[in-house]
Design a protein around this nucleic acid. Sequence first.
DNA 1: GCCCAGGTGGGTA
DNA 2: TACCCACATGGG
Length: 229
Amino acid sequence: MATTNTRRKVERVYELLYDEYGPQHWWPADTPFEVCIGAILTQSTSWTNVEKAIANLKAAGLLSPGGLRAARPARIAGLIRPSLYYNVKARKLKEFVGFLYRGYGGRVESMADVPLDALRVELLGVWGLGPETVDSILLYALDKQSFVVDAYTKRIFSRLGLAAEDAGYDDLKRLFEDNLCGGRRLYNEYHALIVEHGKNTCKPKPICGACHLRRLCDSASFYLSGSKD
DNA sequence: GCCCAGGTGGGTA
DNA sequence: TACCCACATGGG
């Protein structure tokens, strides 16, 4: 439901976040393929641990479609151990690379010509890829206009009163895609800013309480409190 | 020692 | 459909 009010709020939160944190320069990776690998490895895991896993893969010469295709799952698991759930994630990497070779000659870039909706459905069919990982791949590896929702997004926007407590992934995705006029660059920056804010404040327990960035939540809440749709 | 981090798949009622 | 659990490291 795109009302003028909701649109203004969603845009205003972006401005507040951008003023606070500045440009985030996402995704931190050298190639589109590396973005995909990072998107899988960062599932329920902090990025610092993912960086170690990616560095290990790189040092072993396995950070490529061919390298991962040739490697045994146990070898991969040992290298990505610093990221969490290394055995399941090793399988996820193999599944993704298998998909890449079956349909796209092992090249992430070859997916770019497929229409967004069709590609999203296709990627969601790959074992180990859920909506957040798929949208991350679409937006950050392929530069397609698909908003990424994560746990921070839900926590922050339900606390701001812009989303229901029990809002699902698609509900939140729609909130942004229906209310943002900007394109891929805006989607890119907005999600990155949400993650940055989520890491620093809006933790599960303290609810922005003792955080030095409380000011941001307060200013956003203040702006949002006066109006209802 | 405890909590939590940029989720997802599978099982059960 | 809606929960619940497994996965299982490392930093604050």
